[in-house]
Each structure stands twice: as C-alpha cells, then as structure tokens.
C-alpha cells in the first residue's frame, strides 16, 4: 500500500531555487569587500605583490580561525559526551556504551607521546563535523612542523591582527609572520587543551570499566547464589 502511494503523491522540491537565491544574495553582499580591495590597491605604490600576500594572509587567517572554532566545538562536544556518559553509567549496567568508549580511550592514551607528523594524521582522522576541513594532510603536516619551530609571540586573537594589518601597510612582511605565529599559537593551545580533555575522559572511561566489571562480577555472584 505504502510503496504504491510513494509514486502517487505529488510534491515539489524548491531547495535549488532557495539555494540559488541565497547565493545571489551572498554575491550582492560580497561586493563591498571587493571595493575595499580596489581602493586599497589604488593607494598603494607597488600593488600587485602585497595584494596577493594580503589575500593569502586573510585566507590563512580564516582557515586558522576555522580550525580553532572547530577544535573548540569538538572539545565542547566531548565534555558534553562525558557528562552524558556519567549519567548513563549511573543508570545502566550494560556493557555497550563502555565498549564503545574503550576504543577511543586507548587511542587517546597515546596522545602525550605522539610525534608531530603522527599528530597531523590524528587531526585529519578526527571528524570535525561542524566545518569542512579543506586543507590536505600535507598542509597540516606543514602546520604541525611550523608549530614546533615558531615561538609563541602574542596572545591577541587573529581577527584583531587582521584589522591592525589593514592599517599598517608598511612592515607587512614582519606582521605577516607574526600573525601566522599568533594564529598557530592559538591552534596549539586549543589542541593541548583538547589533549587534556581527552586524558580526563580516558581516565573516566577506565574507571567506569572497572565499575562495570565489578558490578558484572556481583551480578554473576548474585545469580549463582540465587540458583544454588
């Protein structure tokens, strides 16, 4: 009955129409920054190269902030998961949730001793559901290597840096490296924070595993006692 009616009811999909309107509206909204670029270009004496570096820089900043927000969201999700898990194990003596958690738990244990290149793989392996990671793993490896080379300079957020850079055009090259360093530092600190959360989670998982084993044992004991 249902299968036959699947073809007999009518519907109209207007998603494409909707998305094309959003795209058009975006384009209209995107005119303003283009104009800004142009005026900036007119004021500058050697326009071609700095403009390029400006655009690549802002692109980089954008990606760095994306990664930052992604990491932040993930850590929030993990802490929520941990809470849920705490509640779940309180009420449920089933093995299933614990088994599931044991796998990433073991994985996380190895985190502090991990090499940078491996770390990059780890990061790519991790699913950031909330945003699209456009960088390839090569870029990430480069990122990780840079992480180790550059000392932390400043703690101001990258967006602020971008703004100040628009004003000081001259010492461009230095500002560029500086902003890179700052952004990367931000990434590094969130990643280390994340590492902490993982460790915490892992200990919690192990504790719960013990608890479950103990309760399982008691259950078995109880059952055998009942049937004797």
């Amino acid at each position: 009955m249902t299968s036959s009616t699947t073809t007999t009811t009518k519907y109209r999909d207007r998603t494409a129409e909707f998305h094309s309107i959003t795209q058009t509206l975006k384009k209209i909204g995107g005119i303003a920054p283009v104009h800004q670029n142009k005026s900036y270009q007119a004021n500058n004496s050697s326009p071609s190269k700095p403009l390029l570096s400006y655009t690549t820089r802002s692109e980089f900043n954008k990606k760095a902030s994306l990664i930052g927000s992604g990491v932040h969201e993930t850590s929030q999700k993990i802490s929520r998961l941990a809470q849920c898990n705490q509640i779940a194990t309180k009420w449920c003596s089933s093995w299933e949730p614990i088994k599931c958690l044991m796998m990433p738990g073991a994985f996380i244990w190895a985190l502090p001793s991990i090499k940078p290149s491996e770390f990059a793989l780890l990061v790519t392996g991790f699913h950031f559901q909330s945003f699209e990671l456009e960088m390839g793993s090569n870029a990430l490896q480069q990122l990780a290597l840079d992480l180790r080379r550059r000392p932390a300079v400043d703690n101001t957020p990258s967006q602020h840096m971008e703004m100040s850079m628009l004003q000081q055009v001259n010492p461009r090259q230095e500002n560029y490296t500086e902003s890179r360093a700052v952004a990367l530092h931000n990434v590094e600190s969130t990643i280390s924070e994340l590492g902490g959360i993982f460790t915490h989670l892992a200990t919690m998982v192990v504790e719960q595993g013990e608890l479950a084993i103990r309760s399982g044992f008691f259950l078995g004991y109880l059952l055998s006692a009942c049937f004797i």
Binding site: T9, K10, Y11, R12, D13, R14, T15, E17, F18, T22
Partner: peptide, 10 residues
C-alpha cells in the same frame, strides 16, 4: 546556511 532543503509536501 542551516537550511538543507525546502519542499512542498501537499
């Protein structure tokens, strides 16, 4: 961009 689809289901 939270909207995934827009449909008319009569």
């Amino acid at each position: 961009e939270v909207v995934q689809q827009v449909q008319e289901y009569y």
